[in-house]
Design a protein around this nucleic acid. Sequence first.
DNA 1: TTGACATGAAACCAAAAGGTTTCGTAATAT
DNA 2: ATATTACGAAACCTTTTGGTTTCATGTCAA
Lengths: 136, 136
Amino acid sequence: MAAPLSKHDVFQAIADPTRRELLHLLSDREMPVTVISSHFPMSRTAVSKHLRVLSEAGLVKERKVGREVRFRLEPEPLQELKSWLTYFERYWENKLAALKRIVEADPEGSSDASGIAPPRQRLVAAADPAERTEPR
Amino acid sequence: MAAPLSKHDVFQAIADPTRRELLHLLSDREMPVTVISSHFPMSRTAVSKHLRVLSEAGLVKERKVGREVRFRLEPEPLQELKSWLTYFERYWENKLAALKRIVEADPEGSSDASGIAPPRQRLVAAADPAERTEPR
DNA sequence: TTGACATGAAACCAAAAGGTTTCGTAATAT
DNA sequence: ATATTACGAAACCTTTTGGTTTCATGTCAA
């Protein structure tokens, strides 16, 4: 349970398209920096910096082989992203379910196949026509 | 197939911790800007800017009510993130996943709008025990 | 009306991000 | 030995980001 209090977190690491491409590239196999950078329209140094950001986020690991340094994907930290997403999943599933009910005009309308607790999101507006927020 | 070629994508939108907190806050119910900003240690204007970034990524929707503007969560765009993650899930789920993938040898992937390139598959690793990369 | 409230636009600023080129150093090849 | 290759560190530059304060405008309350 080492706290990864490093400078870059997973969310920030994957924000850049180049870095996402790097992850895909490295998911295939491990590669040295020069080979990696040959896939990108920027300097090797720039790619190297991106690799460092990924490394600080724990998303890649490096290993020295002779004079080269090979990088490989380390997917585990992506789980944080996944669990973060899980929280919101029920919201869109709920919305989709609601839409489905409307479209199908199902008179019963309460079939939720996911078994996930429904969020307390108001799908309909308040009844008050003025809709004051803070009556003072 | 509306191409979401706006300035901010989902990946970038959720990179900022404040914006992630905003999404959580708004997942509960819709809120006007002033109320939202009271939850954050920064100016209302700053929060407003974050809301705009989220809006450009399609993650929140606004609605005018009297003199206030209420924001609410719009979770659908997060599905892009989820499907992006799905690709990597196989890698972390168990160590045999990579092998399995090689065996199955999925012939073609399709690139999407998020800068993701399909990995070029090489089924055989270098045989040289010295592990030279570029024999010249 | 007049004043208070809710909000966005604008101008501004410091720091971070993303890139470059140059250089030093370790490992390999000849 | 000597040249070549692989790489990171450093210095530098430009653009973006995340924040601020100030101001204008629309809406509501008295």
